[in-house]
Design a binder for these strands. Sequence first.
DNA 1: ATAGATGCAAAAGCTTTGCACAAGG
DNA 2: CCTTGTGCAAAGCTTTTGCATCTAT
Lengths: 146, 146
Amino acid sequence: MSELKKQQNFRMTRQRGIILEELRRINTHPSADEIYEQVRKQQPRISLGTVYRNLEILSELGEIQKLETGSSIKRFDGNPVNHYHIRCICCDRVVDAPVEPLINTSKDIHEATNYKIIGHRFEFIGVCPECSDDAVAPGLEKVKYL
Amino acid sequence: MSELKKQQNFRMTRQRGIILEELRRINTHPSADEIYEQVRKQQPRISLGTVYRNLEILSELGEIQKLETGSSIKRFDGNPVNHYHIRCICCDRVVDAPVEPLINTSKDIHEATNYKIIGHRFEFIGVCPECSDDAVAPGLEKVKYL
DNA sequence: ATAGATGCAAAAGCTTTGCACAAGG
DNA sequence: CCTTGTGCAAAGCTTTTGCATCTAT
């Protein structure tokens, strides 16, 4: 599969183009379904399956990032440069975190564990300003992070 | 729901006890399904639903941790004290990371974003020694972390 | 006695996939 | 042309939930 992918010739279809454009235009880190709804405005017959397939391919190509947050749904980021995020525990929205990525932690870990370290994920968990305003922030009481 | 939970009286049923015991005994960060298989050896008629319900309750009580990794399945940790993990991209197994948790990052973030920061998650992504041995590590080629 | 827990099965939510047809290069 | 991509629908996987029954306390 590795080799296959690498010798594959990717085509820029209308669907793929719109998805990439859309992700580049916004910075809301949408889910596949949110992207689907958005793209449908220009390409009404696009299918969810196509959206998923293209998001997968675009992130393999390094054009976008698949954000594997602690949430049960994956989100996508049109900015391919590594950076950290803050996720709202109430509404699940994700924004960029204003901190520089850490470096050089991986080497120590490798020496201690013998794992090959490919990278790391750092995610702040919080409550966004909108959700903080709500009298009761649903889900808040369940949180057990540090 | 918040209040309800707090006034609730939790009972130590046989099922709940076995699940907690099992998690305390091991340090393999099992999934709900792996716990189910294990507990079934002592309590053959336990249902997966019961396992899920108990894992939820035990983590709300702070007895265990629900690990919301970037993987599509959640894992559980019998150690309730906050610490970081390394996840193998190939086999999805999780081990403890030999690093101290960071502190004091949250305040800056709050000031910059107005998010209430509850905590953070830090997860190393890597390839475990066992998977490194395999000629082809399935899934490796898809990785696009920093 | 009674609030809380269980087992079972169905359903829900997100994602992947098989297949026949369409279209990019 | 012919390989890659699409739309549609079905299936897959993890997790949640409704309900009747059971059981800690």
